[in-house]
Nucleic acid binder design. Sequence first.
DNA 1: ATGGCCTGCAACGCAGGA
Length: 256
Amino acid sequence: MKLATWNVNSLKVRLPQVLDWTGMHRPDVLCLQETKTQNDQFPAAEIRAAGYEPLANGQKTYNGVAILARAAAADAVTAIPGFPDEQKRVLATTISGVRVICAYVPNGESVESDKYQYKLKWLAAFSGWLTAELAHYPRLAVLGDFNVAPDDRDVYDPKAWEGQVLFSAPERDAFKSLQAAGLKDAFRLFEQPERSFTWWDYRMNAFRRKMGLRIDHILLSEALAKACTACTIDVEPRRSERPSDHAPVLAELNLS
DNA sequence: ATGGCCTGCAACGCAGGA
């Protein structure tokens, strides 16, 4: 089973790239973030024509998540239980016996911002939800844009980023709490190249200069981590015309 | 050099991203 996640920064703009990419890599499940598309505007027909059943949880202009799956999806949940939130940031469903959660964690803007406080509250609620989900679903995969770089290796210049949003200690602690709950960072199950990132600023030729952050992640429960045979970042779409600023991340599972 | 770029919405600039 092949799982993938991609922050597309507008599904309307990136749909051709998404269809190209699914055609090339044939993931069984693709989680999308920042679709910026209302559900009634979602390009369901094009996605079905490509062999995927879409599940969307979107809103106008901002945020929005979706899951594209080659097999049937059941038991969808579109919000963190007990955490009222107008922003559409999560989507959970069960596909071929795997509980899949697609997440778009708040950005936080800056550590001085009210949005940063919202981000920390959101992450605390998210952690509680995932702990409960783990108790129900031994096969749990959480994929998305976490807007947190967990480790020095995940930042092109950790000294410059120290204490900044996306790399501040409270955010990294929140990410560690997800790991403490029993989720493994699939990317770090394997040897990886240095300067492996999933996001590069559109400005300053950041991609060409390898000035990026690894903030998009695939977290796996113990049972799925044991079955994981590979986890990679595909930087190719970031080279294309009109790219998303994020690259997709893929994980392969050998499930019996 | 504290902004550089991209998207959506709407409207001729703004909010938001990270």
